[in-house]
């Protein structure tokens, strides 16, 4: 019995496959647009290309939004698979059932930022009369097509490697500091240090955003992302589980914890992305960066994460 055949993974494959097929249909158009599109020309070819550009733009916008939404479904499906895969208690074990599983997850996560950036570029392009970024955006779209191709191959490889019969590790071993791996080393960083960096970076992001230093805001946001993930794993999650030894970024997604992981990660990813894209937009079109939304989202993330240890302290009078 192959894991391919669960309804969840099939739907995932169906939609990913559908998107890839649409991308394949678009490829020749994208290729021509990337090479030939020139709003300054008035040839029949250019008029035809302008229509193509609308198709490509509309389709890509539709597809990339679906891709972003699909990420949530992917995470949900992983979590659901933990019921089938022996030994897996949550998505952590499922994603580690294949050596390249973590790569697939990282790839998909990177995809969120890439797709989002492309959508921002597309919006900026269409908002100017001279469509200044059209060639650029279609060239980048060719890159996205390759990116999606690799992602699909990884997904196939991953689902193929999933075997309900093999026993995988649960999050208890994967995220333990005793784990001899890069992650294990990182998790061994003293919590006080980690938290110091976490809150300091957040303060730096707020400061640079308020001072309108978009470059700095983007840099700190980029740094904040991995630090925040580490802080969730080794510190904040233990307060969600109320168990000092339970350090896992995936169990948060489960029903026992009110699915709060979805909210927490949404705030983190949307917040950092919003800041990055605001900085990017400011750079591209020389306008004032719109940091407000990103700051609210990220502020919400920090507040939510902080609430768990504080709430625990208020309830029990001690920290874990």
């Amino acid at each position: 019995m192959s894991a391919f055949l669960t309804p969840d993974t099939l739907v995932l494959l169906l939609i990913e496959g559908l998107l890839l097929a649409l991308m394949a249909v678009l490829l020749p158009s994208l290729w021509r647009l990337a090479r030939r599109f020139d709003i300054g020309r008035t040839t029949p070819e250019q008029y035809a290309l302008e229509k193509r550009a609308y198709l490509a733009g509309t389709l890509l916008r539709f597809m990339l939004w679906v891709k972003i939404a699909l990420f949530v479904y992917f995470v949900y499906a992983l979590d659901h698979l933990s019921g089938v895969i022996t030994g897996a208690m949550c998505a952590a074990g499922v994603i580690n059932a294949w050596d390249y599983g973590p790569l697939l997850l990282g790839w998909k996560l990177a995809g969120l930022y890439l797709f989002g950036s492309w959508l921002v570029l597309h919006r900026l392009d269409l908002s100017r009369e001279n469509l200044p970024f059209s060639r650029l955006k279609f060239r980048l779209a060719l890159g996205l097509a390759a990116f999606m191709g690799v992602e699909f191959a990884l997904l196939i490889g991953y689902l193929d490697a999933l075997d309900p019969a093999t026993i995988v590790s649960c999050c208890g071993t994967l995220f333990s500091t005793a784990n001899v791996s890069a992650l294990g080393t990182l998790l061994a960083i003293p919590k006080a240090w980690l938290l110091g960096v976490f809150y300091a970076l957040f303060a730096l992001i707020v400061a640079s955003a308020l001072l309108r230093r978009s470059g700095l805001a983007a840099l700190f946001s980029l740094l904040f992302l991995p630090v925040a993930l580490l802080a969730i794993i080794s510190f904040f999650s233990t307060y969600v589980y109320e168990l000092p030894t339970h350090t896992c970024p995936f169990c948060l997604l489960q029903k026992e914890y009110g699915y709060m992981g979805y909210l927490l990660y949404f705030l983190l990813f949307a917040g950092t992305f919003s800041l990055l894209s605001a900085a990017l937009a400011a750079k591209l079109v020389q306008e004032k960066a719109r940091f407000a939304l990103g700051l609210w989202l990220l502020g919400g993330f920090v507040a939510l994460a902080t609430w768990y240890p504080v709430g625990f302290y208020l309830k029990n009078g001690v920290f874990l």
């Binding site: 300054g40 008035t42 040839t43 302008e50 269409l126």
Partner: peptide, 22 residues
């Protein structure tokens, strides 16, 4: 529609090469 060559200015605005949205 757009001209093959030349310029069209209407109400102070060149409309010869406007993208569809505009």
């Amino acid at each position: 529609t757009k001209p093959t060559s030349g310029d069209v200015v209407v109400a102070g605005r060149s409309v010869a090469k406007l993208p569809d949205r505009f």
